[in-house]
């Protein structure tokens, strides 16, 4: 077994300069900029929904859009703050107020439009299209968040992962509400936060089993 002085000597034996992480809020801003850029690139390829100018004058639509955006922004900031050891764990509650507002205004249309029955028979509904856009936006954002927050795996992996997935959900919902005629918030939250929760639960279960078997 390695003694502590031996471990210290080993750790200090290969001194290489490392690049310090920027402050968490700055890193969150970088991630949010990537999100904005991605949505911008998709907007070039994918036309904005035709009724957008009208919707921008309607309070329910604006409420959903702004609360989703606020949830995404604040969840990203909270995730980056919690990924650093010395910040208060209370930052984890930061996105809860806008998230409550967002959840109170979401619709579930996307969950009910998986198939469409028309003159051509049964075809894929708008949900399938939603799902494609959701993957197109959510996957790169999730990947970027994972890369930027991987160090948190040694600290508070559950909270940081859930906050990051909430941030991805918020930004994906903003993108979807700009491109898609039906509300996909429930689908987005289920896809992002749900899959993260399942993965975390699986990790916890397997970890417990592994430790018990040892």
């Amino acid at each position: 077994m390695t003694t502590t002085p031996e471990l210290i000597a080993t750790l200090a034996s290969h001194p290489t300069p490392i690049r310090r992480y920027r402050p968490p809020v700055q890193r969150a801003v970088v991630w949010l900029s990537v999100s904005a850029l991605l949505i911008g690139v998709i907007a070039i390829e994918h036309p904005l929904r035709p009724d957008l100018p009208t919707l921008l004058h309607q309070t329910p639509y604006l409420l959903t859009l702004c609360s989703a955006l606020a949830t995404g922004v604040l969840a990203a900031i909270a995730a980056f703050l919690l990924s650093v050891p010395d910040r208060s764990r209370l930052w984890g509650f930061l996105p809860l107020p806008p998230m409550g507002l967002w959840l109170s205004s979401v619709g579930y249309q996307c969950l009910t439009h998986w198939v469409a029955i028309g003159p051509k028979g049964i075809t894929l509904g708008q949900t399938a299209d939603c799902f494609a856009t959701l993957t197109l936006v959510g996957l790169p954002l999730g990947l970027a968040a994972s890369l930027m927050l991987h160090h948190a795996a040694r600290l508070d992996v559950a909270k940081v992962s859930l906050l990051a997935s909430l941030a991805v959900s918020g930004m994906t919902a903003v993108a979807m509400s700009l491109f898609h005629p039906i509300d996909a918030s429930v689908l987005i939250l289920t896809f992002n936060v749900g899959s993260t929760a399942v993965l975390l639960g699986l990790g916890l279960f397997l970890g417990t089993r592994f430790r018990r078997d040892r």
Binding site: I18, R20, Y21, V84, P85, L155
Partner: peptide
């Protein structure tokens, strides 16, 4: 103590002087 030192080493980039 060794676990703590290893974690400190792994995430030393997160320290802001």
């Amino acid at each position: 103590v060794q676990d703590i030192l290893l974690t400190l080493h792994a995430i030393r980039a997160t320290y802001d002087p």
